[in-house]
Design a protein around this nucleic acid. Sequence first.
DNA 1: AATCTCGACAACCGCGGTTCA
DNA 2: GTGAACCGCGGTTGTCGAGAT
Length: 323
Amino acid sequence: MGRSPCCEKVGLKKGPWTPEEDQKLLAYIEEHGHGSWRALPAKAGLQRCGKSCRLRWTNYLRPDIKRGKFTMQEEQTIIQLHALLGNRWSAIATHLPKRTDNEIKNYWNTHLKKRLAKMGIDPVTHKPKCDALGPGADGQSKSAANLSHMAQWESARLEAEARLVRESKLRTTTNQLSPPPPLEVLHALHGKIDLESPTSTLNYADTGNSNCTNANLVPFNSRMCYDDGEMKFFGKQQEDLLGFQIERNGPAFCGGDISWFAAGQTAGFTGLLLDSSEAQNSSDCCGESSNVQVGSCEEDGDGEENRNYWNSILNLVNSSPPL
DNA sequence: AATCTCGACAACCGCGGTTCA
DNA sequence: GTGAACCGCGGTTGTCGAGAT
């Protein structure tokens, strides 16, 4: 089935918007709302296609947009969420009030990605590039796989949350019922939803640890499992190693290995990014050696910093996006 | 002063998902 | 159930200004 073009291209203006065009678009939307974007340009007297108008509105003219330099807090949020979600800019944008996905994407591509690369950190995996080298890389690549696993799981969870919120809002408008908070909704639905990870055979634990202990990540015996707002680790060894529990108010979670986590492999990158002196240390330690222990780049098992880092990510993810 | 290079950001393009007749 | 229209998203390109040569 062929798709028709979004608009008739002939005679339509392209390129940068003029102040007059902005004014027309603003005035029209303020008075009538945008309605159908396709029909808007003609009604507003603009020689633009609807798509162009929508983009201009959502990325620039909308009154609830904050412009200007990103704060350190915002940078930190972006980096952390990107580590978790990848290039899902719209999902990231839901956690940065008043910032558009386009703006975040541009900022990532022009600033943060380069800064990571400069420090020897792969901006895709958020891991030191030296991970790919040498005999020590094996365990770290497994760790990367588990980070990816976690990220995918969290990603799926975020999508489910967003969907449930949307559905709840829909029900609210039709039934005049207050929607439950998204995480509570998820709790309520645990028994119904199979939230199996998209890439593994790990099962979502709805009643506790039992499923987690049956998980089948052969090379690793350390498991983490969220349940009733608490992250639990399976294996005394790992608990001893970590020496803390992650604070969390969220749905039960089970899956993923944590040895990478305990090693501090990803922890502290944000701090490095935000502190150039630390960045130097990082690139040094990831330079020539092929047997780098990534944990040594940071704080050699400083559980406190790991905890803070991951708590901040999990808190970000758990906070309800401003839908 | 002219030209070149690069960074920053706005805007466009094409694809996929959703909605609706 | 089907296909067209619509919308949102992510990747890419275009434009502009600042600094370097």
